[in-house]
Every structure is written in structure tokens, then in C-alpha cells.
């Protein structure tokens, strides 16, 4: 949501200076939002999560919900509650197939989204798998205390993770804004629930699992909307989630959870 708002502000500012050439505008907005949104991620970690590092899990979760409500209300206060429209920057597409009156087109916008996603996914996979920071992150995921003992700066690693997460989320916000052309302060709620659902469906802590979960949620919703009813697509997605979790309590690709006593 914050990423989308910073993007729309950047686009409108560029528009004031008469710059509407789409590739340049998108690049500037991408840089601006990836520079400014992570500040929120960092500040959030510093203010709301670090003091609770050693608290029970419930405290951190409640804090997360509270911060999300706080940020939504903050944006609603400073930017207003109405939806903000942006005229589409990228239009047109490639015609793939035509039969009779039905034309199948692939929009340039869709191509841009897929390319941007694939590039970012590759970059972040490399970052997690190959760099020192990624190694530190994986160490912190497994055991905070042990990671600290072997010389990982836990605080800095977690802060860097929040910054990276915020940067990725801001790109998602930019894409949302570009694709749908509207943004309001509440767009993050649904996306957050769906992201969490996808992660749980695939199994928490598994990157391919998260991708598979996201794909499944998207396909279920699309097919359900097409064949049954649009209103109940979320119900269908959650029902499938419950069904899967009954038979595989740790998600599709998740590791069996060993209770640590």
C-alpha cells in the first residue's frame, strides 16, 4: 500500500514536469518506491519488532496486526480514504490468436509484470542462496541464538530482511497500481491474507512451496469465479486451504514440524 502510494505520487510528480514517457516514468517510480518504502520496513522492525524479539510468538503477531492497522490509518489520514486513480501508462499488446470475433491478446503490461517478477525472483533467489547476507538470513531462520554465537549480527540481518521485504512489497504495490490503475489505503489487507494463505498452503519456509501455493490460490479463484460465482471465490480458496491442511497439516511442501520443547 505504501509502495503503491509512493509510486502514484512519483508518477503524478513526473506528470507535473511533463514527463510521461512510460519506460522512464516506471523506472523512476521503481527506484523511488524501492528507496523510500524500505525506510518504513526498517523503522517498523526497529520500533515494533526488535523490542519483542524474545517475546512469545503471539506478541509479535498481535504487534504485526497492530502495525498494519496503524499504517492503514496513517495513510488514510494523510492521503484520504477515497480511491486514487491513475491513467494507464502501458497500453496495447500483442495479438496472439484470433478465431471469429474472439481475439486473444497479451498485454504489454502483463508481459512487463511477468518479466519484472521473474527478474526479481531470480535476483532474490541468488541473494538468499549465494551471498553472505543470505547465508546469515538462513542461519537466523534456523536458530537465532546459535546464529549469534557463530558471529552473525542478528539485529542487522533481521533489519536487512525487513528492508528487502519492504522493497519487494513496494514493487508489488507499483505493479498493482500500474495494472489496476487505482490505489487506496486498504489494498494491502486482501493481498496480505492471500500471501499468508499461499505461504501456508505451500508450507511455511519453503520458497517453491510459496510459489506453488500462490499459483494454486490464483487458479482456484480464477476457475471458481469463471464456473461458479465471483462472490464466493475467497470462500473456495479458504475451503481448499482447509482441505489440504486436514490431510497435510504442514502444507504441500512443508517439512513436518517437530515440536520443540
Amino acid at each position: 500500500m505504501i509502495g503503491a502510494f509512493i509510486s502514484i505520487i512519483t508518477f503524478l510528480l513526473l506528470g507535473l514536469f511533463g514527463i510521461t514517457w512510460a519506460p522512464f516514468a516506471i523506472l523512476v517510480a521503481l527506484l523511488a518506491t524501492m528507496a523510500l518504502t524500505p525506510l518504513y520496513g526498517w523503522a517498523l522492525e526497529r520500533l515494533a519488532y526488535r523490542p519483542l524479539r524474545h517475546s512469545p510468538r503471539l506478541a509479535a503477531l498481535i504487534t504485526a496486526i497492530g502495525m498494519s492497522i496503524f499504517l492503514q490509518n496513517y495513510v488514510q489520514l494523510v492521503q484520504g480514504a477515497r480511491i486514487k486513480p491513475l491513467q494507464s501508462l502501458v497500453t496495447g499488446g500483442i495479438e496472439i490468436m484470433q478465431r471469429g470475433d474472439f481475439v486473444v491478446t497479451l498485454g504489454y503490461m502483463q508481459i512487463l509484470i511477468v518479466v519484472l517478477t521473474v527478474v526479481l525472483m531470480a535476483a532474490f533467489t541468488l541473494l538468499i542462496q549465494r551471498t553472505a547476507l543470505g547465508r546469515a538470513q538462513r542461519a537466523c531462520e534456523q536458530d537465532l541464538k546459535m546464529a549469534a554465537l557463530v558471529g552473525v549480527d542478528v539485529d542487522r540481518t533481521i533489519a536487512a530482511t525487513f528492508v528487502m521485504g519492504a522493497a519487494l512489497a513496494s514493487v508489488a504495490g507499483l505493479i498493482f497500481l500500474l495494472y489496476y490503475g487505482v490505489v487506496d489505503f486498504f489494498i494491502g489487507f486482501n493481498a496480505g491474507i492471500k500471501a499468508f494463505t499461499a505461504a501456508v498452503l505451500g508450507g511455511i519456509g519453503s520458497l517453491p512451496g510459496a510459489m506453488l501455493g500462490g499459483l494454486l490460490i490464483g487458479l482456484i479463484e480464477a476457475f471458481w469465479s469463471a464456473y461458479f460465482s465471483v462472490e464466493y471465490k475467497d470462500v473456495a480458496a479458504f475451503t481448499v486451504l482447509v482441505m489440504v491442511l486436514i490431510f497435510r497439516p504442514t502444507g504441500l511442501l512443508g517439512k513436518p514440524d517437530i515440536e520443540k520443547v
Binding site: I193, T197, V235, F238, L241, L245, P249, D257
Partner: peptide
């Protein structure tokens, strides 16, 4: 019945989903 096999995040998301389902059904 179905969710008490789950633990932690999994339980949280299923109950969250249940809450959303009730809301969506009541609204639609």
C-alpha cells in the same frame, strides 16, 4: 474438528480464513 490437528501459523491462518468465509457469506 478439522483444525485442531494444526499448530502455530497453520492454525492461525485457517481460523483467519474461517472468519473471512463467514464474513463473505454473510455479505453475499
Amino acid at each position: 474438528f478439522p483444525v485442531l490437528r494444526l499448530r502455530g501459523d497453520y492454525l492461525a491462518i485457517v481460523t483467519l480464513g474461517f472468519g473471512e468465509m463467514i464474513r463473505i457469506i454473510l455479505l453475499n
